[in-house]
Design a protein around this nucleic acid. Sequence first.
DNA 1: AAAATAGACAACCGCAACGAG
DNA 2: GCTCGTTGCGGTTGTCTATTT
Length: 317
Amino acid sequence: MGRPPCCDSFGVKKGPWTPEEDIILVSYIQQHGPGNWRSVPTSTGLLRCSKSCRLRWTNYLRPGIKRGNFTEQEDKMIIHLQALLGNRWAAIASYLPQRTDNDIKNYWNTHLKKRLHNYRTNSGQENHHRQQGASTSSSSSEATTVAKGQWERKLQTDIHMAKQALSDALSLHNKSSTSWQQPSFTTPTTPVHHQPELVPPPPGNFSSSTYALSSENIARLLPNWLKNCRKSSETSSESIGTFNQQFPSPPSERFKNYNNSEISETTSLFQGESKPHTMEDQMPSLSFLEKCLFDDAAAQGHEGFMDMSLEDSDGLF
DNA sequence: AAAATAGACAACCGCAACGAG
DNA sequence: GCTCGTTGCGGTTGTCTATTT
């Protein structure tokens, strides 16, 4: 029943994207803007399904994406937002405009969840010891009969604290932009081992096995790649031609613009994108944010959030 | 040095939501 | 109101690299 998956069609390529594919995709989006993903594979000649194209764009090629180490501030925000919102990574990512939901999800699964688990295990033991030393009058049955009023008060307190933390985090970011600003392209920010500083291989000789990077690499690759394209063939794909038109200046400069907060002519192409580009001009107002958080927490019955107060989380760092 | 294991991350898959006709 | 097509989201898997044995 139902429609077959879009990727079932014969001849659709899977696996890691190559620089050539990235360039073609970026070129196409430069010209047409993001969206209408269905037509991307046919228009570009990419042997990828529309989903794959969209994913590649939103997670790696889209301008304004910050990669590499998560800051402590980001860690905290993710932890608290996860407690409030659950595994709604897209919603969480909307509060961290430079991070993708996939990135946050991966980071949560590989780092934060573990850290949180360890912390809870440790603090749980401590609490257990503490409780044993405390008065015997407190029993488990008593714990279950905590008045609803108290429970609600605790919820209110926790939400208030979460809001406070969020507020602090945001004001911190507004004051010192260092942790939020895009790193320069010249210095690789990612500590990821298998993403070494990329030295563009000879065009046509890309190593797809190690290639996974985003626009930053494309920016580096483009000059050589384009040069070679011009030399090798005048009959190369349409997309390359349009790319040359669109990048009369070194493309790397254009890509650099993506990471500046100033809106460049190129970024204006992506106005339709759901992801904001900078913290300052795209973050929802705090009051709105607060309301959302409160509503969300209330609607969700605040599970998880009750487990850990903000003070508790400080022990994580 | 080779094999085994763990960690990290990119990408895929399936489902749900949404809008257009 | 229904169907179909498209997009977005979250869970999961696959693959590569680093570390340990």
